[in-house]
């Protein structure tokens, strides 16, 4: 569903971050359908779990889930990127119900999530905070400022996810700026580290269950190895489909592959 709708939204807009949305599809689905405590009828419910998008450019993969859960209607979503629409390439918390924070500038949202977790803890709320980051985002120094502060404050209600799809605007992340070994880096910054296959529902479920029900006195990061463009054979593993557009024939070809799968 996420991938299908991403293709549809791209069709409306004429441009889309396919690769980044497809790589995190199972992670987003697992979070919203199995773990996060949210209420579409009360999008500002004080004790809801928070989800922030460090990789805001993949919002096109988040919106369909929020629509499916009932935060807004499909018709509203299909105004995507049209003049005056609430739904742009990057999420706007003041316009999109269910979006817990605005993003677009890479590297900001783990810091915001640290503040959310501090505030929620100070208020005695049971709410948890999940921040979805990209692997290219790990090059931002602010991510590590945030990582250090989360460990300093013992924020075990905070969960980071790094969608390691290995590509960015300029090609392979490892060519632009190598960030591995990420396990060692996050561990050294005081986080519990879980490395997993980001397309394996069982692995995701186990990791989120452990991370979100922690109480171990420190934050947890899921390092999810994924495939950019997962689900469409000619996109998989390519940097070229980080951003792009499909004409009608190619769109149908992609949709046929996607419909054959479960998401």
């Amino acid at each position: 569903m996420i991938r299908r709708e991403t293709v549809k939204l791209t069709d409306i807009c004429g441009s889309g971050h396919y690769g980044s949305a497809f790589s995190m599809a199972e992670l987003i689905a697992s979070l919203y359908y199995e773990f996060l405590h949210v209420d579409p009828k009360q999008p500002r419910w004080a004790d809801r779990d928070r989800f922030t998008m460090g990789k805001g450019h993949a919002a096109i993969g988040l919106y369909p889930v929020l629509a499916d859960l009932g935060f807004f209607t499909w018709d509203e979503l299909y105004t995507y990127t049209r003049l005056g629409s609430p739904f742009g390439d990057h999420p706007d918390m003041r316009k999109v119900k269910g979006a817990d924070f605005s993003s677009g500038s890479i590297g900001h949202n783990l810091s915001v999530s640290v503040g959310m977790a501090l505030g929620l803890r100070a208020k005695g709320s049971p709410a948890r905070v999940v921040c979805m980051m990209g692997d290219g985002e790990q090059a931002e120094g602010q991510v590590w400022e945030a990582a250090m502060s989360a460990a300093h404050y013992g924020l075990d209600s905070l969960v980071g996810i790094v969608d390691i799809n290995k590509v960015g605007s300029d090609g392979q992340v490892s060519d632009s700026m190598n960030n591995e070994p990420l396990d060692d880096k996050w561990r050294a910054f005081g986080w519990e580290v879980l490395r997993l296959d980001g397309h394996d529902y069982n692995a995701i479920g186990d990791a989120l269950d452990r991370a979100l029900n922690g109480g171990r006195g420190r934050p947890t990061v899921l390092l999810a190895d994924t495939i950019a463009g997962k689900g469409v054979s000619f996109m998989e593993g390519t940097w070229q489909w980080h951003l792009g557009f499909l004409g009608p024939t190619d769109r149908d070809r992609a949709l046929a592959e996607i419909e054959g799968a479960s998401i």
Binding site: H108, N109, S111, V114, M116, S149
Partner: peptide, 25 residues
């Protein structure tokens, strides 16, 4: 418990302040 020092990391501090504001502080 209402005082947060972020060390010499101003950008993280600004982002965290934003997060704190979303929770009502």
């Amino acid at each position: 418990h209402r005082y947060f020092n972020f060390g010499i990391a101003e950008r993280n501090m600004i982002g965290a302040a934003a997060g704190l504001a979303t929770t009502g502080f």
